[in-house]
Write a protein that binds this DNA or RNA. Structure first.
Lengths: 218, 218
DNA sequence: TCAAAAATTTAGGCAAAACTAAAAAAAATT
DNA sequence: AATTTTTTTTAGTTTTGCCTAAATTTTTGA
């Protein structure tokens, strides 16, 4: 059985490895969890004992098969609960993160699988992020971050890969939501920012924001 | 902000005080929480510092106003989540307890008040127990435990004041559920047990079971 | 290549919440 | 009223997960 702290470490490692089994550094985890590197080292030892990660001193850490499954299950729970909050309880998309962060740690496979059915097996959460199925597999999607497209492309916003409320409120301000059409007008090489058109209006967005916008080319 | 352990203590004190501000003993709390009296003493000190209980050494403990409100809120959350599990996710009434025990600690008043609305402001949980409203008030009910009725009474089962799955499975076995009509035939004074009729069938139930059955006289 | 800088680990503490054993207070019994 | 029993509290440990400071390893770059 995993503790709350362990689950948060596994989730952080999964995120930092871009949802693969890549190696992640101690410092990166410390930054992600707003804790100290020494705390990370200790926890990694516990996770290693439980065979949830592979670890070599000074070389970084990667998820084991069972650690990956555990982490994916938490992501699945997080995203399904976000769907519940938005579609059944009328939460706004920028209000769901903190509550889902708590709900994702509830332990009951019957609960989460029933919730999945109750919601009609959604494929993405309210931010457009894919929801792993009961076997831990992601539905495939043909989207890429806006930051990876060249100029002169017309695309549709499929998702936002970050649920920080301050980002989501900013996107609301730009009138940008899932399904919005965007035209990528110009890439500014100096800072990797973009000029884009949303609803016939010219906007400038930073590289940091461009990375979070998942676009499907039209 | 209350910790998980603190919330479980407050809930135990509320239960042992019969949902009043009565004084409760250290030993009773230890028994309820399956812990040791010395642990209880320590935790009570913390709760006293936070003004959640009133406490005098060797004299027992009672909930303060804010402790009572905190504890009632947990009961409200527990019972609303039980409603959700049964009415929306098709859980059986004997499967909900452990999951609700986890869900009751989720902190978000928006969540619980939205859930209340989503469920249609239910007055009782799936076991017939009353659900405190948003202000922490119980809806009144005109039911009493079966154990407090005399012979020759016809009544309706309004609730079951215990959600131990082994009790609920036993009640299913007796074909007894919320809404069942029962005839109290005979009280056996020796052990305070009862002969009752459920669906035209004669049954014998112990005092322990009789105490859990909330009956409205017909 | 070799010293400085950065990243990581180790060592030693702290707070929460549990435990056991022992001491102290209250209640029960003779 | 005195003694025994029960209840409660205190004192001293343990585990988890965090911290700071110091030591060690790796990386960088002159």
């Amino acid at each position: 059985m995993t503790t709350l702290a362990e689950e948060n470490y596994l989730k952080a490692i999964l995120k930092l490895s871009n949802y693969t089994l890549e190696i992640v550094s101690t410092n990166a985890i410390a930054k992600e969890l707003k804790t100290k590197a020494s705390s990370v080292t200790e926890m990694i030892k516990k996770l290693t004992d439980k065979k949830l990660v592979n670890y070599q001193k000074y070389k970084g850490v990667s998820l084991s098969k069972s650690g990956y499954k555990t982490a994916i299950d938490i992501v699945r729970k997080h995203r399904l609960w976000e769907c519940f909050l938005v579609s059944k309880l009328q939460f706004d998309w920028d209000e769901v993160h903190d509550v889902a962060e708590q709900l994702e740690h509830i332990k009951s496979s019957k609960l989460i699988d029933s919730l999945d059915i109750f919601l009609g097996n959604p494929k993405t959460d309210p931010h457009g992020e894919p929801i792993p199925n009961i076997n831990g597999e992601f539905p495939k999607s043909n989207s890429l971050p806006l930051s990876e497209f060249p100029n002169d492309i017309i695309g549709e916003v499929i998702g936002v890969s970050n649920d920080d409320p301050s980002l989501l409120k900013y996107l609301d301000f730009l009138s940008l939501s899932i399904g919005s059409k965007v035209i990528i007008n110009k890439k500014i090489d100096f800072d990797n920012s973009f000029e884009i058109v949303i609803n016939n209006k010219q906007n400038h967005i930073s590289h940091k924001v461009a990375k979070t916008l998942l676009i499907r080319e039209l």
